[in-house]
């Protein structure tokens, strides 16, 4: 679930739940877990980021894994827009990015990387999208934030931080290379107009 900017982002969001070092630690922990879970075939993993912040997180995870395990890690982009289940129900549409995955996928482990894990619908779309590229040995899911409220029977394999939220709340994530703001995560209460 991408954390889109909104007019609220102009409002001072208070103190963050995670700051830059908290995000760094969370990603390092995920990297360790990925290495642990995917031995001995670590070289067969593909980190497939969901645009736009998932792509940045996948890039950071790949670098961490390469540092920690000294194994080159393939990354990719998996755009879910054309696999979503709500086309035709929205008033406007965001840009679709070209998906990019190393092929063939046969025998590989594709790890979907998302920023905020919420209803599970984005993950389902990502799994469908990956299926059009080929048949990987397995698909896993890594997310920086798991905020709950699943609408589908899907769970994450790697979670940076579990963040219990209310439906009316919004998770605001900023990453330096994407947003030109320092890394941070906030929990924001939506004010009803």
């Amino acid at each position: 679930m991408a954390a889109h900017s909104s007019p609220l982002s102009a409002v001072s969001p208070g103190s963050p739940i995670l700051d830059a070092s908290g995000i760094r630690n969370a990603l390092r922990r995920i990297a360790h877990e990925i290495i642990e879970r995917n031995q001995p075939d670590l070289g067969a993993i593909v980190l497939a980021g969901i645009p736009s912040r998932g792509v940045e997180i996948a890039r950071r995870l790949a670098r961490l894994i390469e540092e920690l395990a000294q194994v080159p890690v393939a990354t990719g982009i998996i755009d879910v827009a054309m696999h979503r289940d709500d086309v035709g129900k929205r008033a406007n549409l965001p840009m679709v990015q070209a998906s990019r995955l190393p092929v063939p996928l046969d025998g590989r482990t594709v790890i979907i990387v998302d920023d905020v894990f919420y209803t599970g619908r984005t993950t389902r779309a990502a799994m469908d999208a990956i299926g059009t590229f080929g048949r990987p040995a397995r698909i896993q899911l890594a997310t920086l934030i798991d905020r709950g409220h699943r609408e589908l029977p899907i769970r994450a394999d790697y979670v940076g931080k579990n963040l219990p939220t209310a439906m009316g709340e919004r998770v605001r994530l900023r990453l330096e290379n994407v947003d030109a703001e320092p890394d941070a995560v906030w929990l924001i209460k939506e004010e009803k107009a």
Partner: peptide, 16 residues
């Protein structure tokens, strides 16, 4: 992005 779909194994997406 849609041109890329033409290079996939399955050249079909469920968008519509």
């Amino acid at each position: 992005a849609f041109k890329q779909v033409g290079t996939r194994d399955v050249k079909k997406v469920p968008a519509l």
